[in-house]
Design a protein around this nucleic acid. Structure first.
Lengths: 217, 217, 217, 217
DNA sequence: TATGAATGAGGTTTCATTCAT
DNA sequence: GATGAATGAAACCTCATTCAT
């Protein structure tokens, strides 16, 4: 019987993940979260303090979950080829972007924050987003000109790649209205990962040519 | 001659453009919009009917403004090369994404809708977003395999390109926290347009190889 | 061109008659009245002072109109039989109750006041309603026991008759929902006047029997 | 044991009965209802959802109360004479019309709806008003020509009787201004019921003569 | 005489939060 | 741990009225 407490807390957290990631912080109401969890409205404050702290807890949960279930290295060792590791990272980002359950929470929260930043934003960027950007950056340096690569170029290429992935995390209503039958779902992650990896390797190839070509002259 | 009347309406519209594009529909309050415009709260109702209709007016204004001041064809004729037209379209999207004034309103509203769609979404997509997607699609077909190109491939490449541009329209706080000194501003539009165009042409080259190479064999 | 003034005033008054009699004082808005009249909102205050004074003017207009077009004596001389004069009064009240245009305004305003009295109520009762009640009362005294009739009995019978007429002035939605196909319209005034007169003469006969029978014993 | 909870809901309902039946739906404000109940304005939403639902609850309450405390059959069995049952129905309607407390709420709400129908009107007519009209109609058929009676005649006579009762439910201010000392109160219900029953039986007698006399000839 | 603009008050509703039990 | 009740702030909207022209 001591489990009821933990259990209710978990139900609230799960419900909050769904609601916050779908509607964003401000459109979400504590009432809706509690109703979906079958819990009393006062319990959010009991377990989490207030709405903002619940939001923090949701972020932490989503980050831990996705880092564990859907890591950017895809299980590959550091010795795998840069191409393979890029494919793994793209694939992971796409699974995050296209999933609807727990796996998708993180990417959708990110889209929400990119539109409407909350006070939580700073720590989110520091703890969750920058490490992933650095991970991609490391792979890109290998694919470009090694450690000597101009950091500005790395940043540009990183944004090129993350942009291709993040646009797919935009809310389903927009995408399905725009794309109609051709909208994507989680099953398309493999195919899209192939496309984006190939497209990006092509792009990176040209960028590297420009760099090293310019350097040799 | 008097500063009343049309002037107040314009001030309200301008203020609403700023507030809506920065905070999104739901977080924006009529009170804040009117305060910034130096107008009574009831005037939104007087001039626009209600909050939703004001939002519609803001979209229309932003769309007209950006279509006029920052068109995707960049003033190029239809006979220009596909590469040049792609560069023009990317350049236009980047100026929209990175500008802070009226030019930037449209892209920021789009990011807001991708996170928190409103009831206005459907007509926005139909009237404003799809034509632009089609414009890019037309250029891409030329760069790939002509009118025979698999529509699915065109869609994927279009998303690759729009994704690279849209990620830059994410709210400034997120970007500057992540990128620090290397964050971009409107002055970087030229350089970034060069990068994204080059990167994308590299990607498209590989994609076309895969298509036509596969077909010829 | 000096006619525009009077003309606008008249249009406002007419429009106000329709709106006030349909919705009552409080649900009616100056905006709706002016819109129906094709006039600016400020003109009500210009011509009538404020909403309450417009309402007063409407009452006066409706009372004068109905007194002239639909008098309770129906054009009969004082020498006509009491039965004929009762029929005329009932007929007039029914035409007022069932008409939809100017003729119907007075009765509908009365129903509104009976539900939601306004500050105008007192003068309305004194100037418009009591004279009519007295007119009916006079006829009834003739049909009962002459001038000796107990005033309480006259009042009771007067209410019996006016009640039968006024219930037909209740708003059309209620009646048509309740009565369905058998709801009444202005064309039924003749038939209903016959019914109510016959019914009431029957009732008055019994009441007189009770009075005079009791007196003789 | 605490006075909170159910008690507050009841206080709100009671207060709403008073305010709605006195002023009608549109003139009544949630603020006034809550103030009279000593409750916070948000509690209407908490207990009833919104103003319209509170109004529904008031109707239901008033209907149940009056059906229980003041039924049209007055406790008489179906075998009682039609005259006695008519007297009971008239007596019940008058007690409803003249009472000031809970018993009077129903009739006063009805007068309000007859002047300013709300969206609730349709269900009110169906659930509360039509059954009562049918009850009277049944008695009238017995007093006229049995089941063969022309339904139109039954309707006319029913309106004659209900009209005599409903006019007494008109708001007190109107009546007392018109009648002065002779205005009625709940204590007059007995006497008025006698008058209206006698008056109506007289009227019905004549109507029946007209029907059956005409038929026999 | 007429108009459009502007204002302030008041009404309904929503919501995060707190409290007593 | 959990609940229902209660609160106050804030948001949107409506409307009568006033003002300058």
């Amino acid at each position: 019987m001591t489990d009821t407490g933990k259990d209710t807390r978990q139900r609230l957290l799960k419900s909050a993940c769904l609601v916050f990631s779908e509607k964003g912080y401000h459109r979400s109401t504590i009432g809706a979260i509690c109703q979906k969890a079958g819990a009393n409205v006062a319990l959010v404050n009991y377990y989490f303090g207030d709405k903002a702290s619940l939001y923090d807890a949701v972020w932490r949960h989503a980050f831990e979950y996705v880092s564990r279930e859907c890591p950017l290295d895809g299980g590959l060792s550091e010795e795998a080829s840069a191409e393979a590791r890029l494919h793994a990272a793209v694939h992971a980002m796409l699974r995050r972007a296209l999933s609807s359950g727990d796996t998708g929470t993180f990417a959708r929260l990110m889209v929400q924050e990119m539109a409407c930043p909350t006070l939580t934003l700073a720590s989110i960027v520091d703890e969750a987003i920058r490490p992933q950007a650095d991970h991609i950056g490391g792979i890109l340096r290998e694919l470009l000109a090694g450690d000597d690569t101009d950091p500005g170029v790395v940043t540009e290429c990183m944004l090129s790649i993350m942009g291709q992935c993040l646009i797919l995390a935009a809310n389903r209503p927009v995408r399905s209205r725009l794309l109609g039958d051709r909208d994507f779902s989680a099953e398309d992650a493999d195919r899209l990962a192939d496309h984006i990896t190939r497209f990006s390797l092509g792009g990176l190839h040209v960028v590297r040519e420009a760099i090293t070509g310019g350097r040799r002259q």
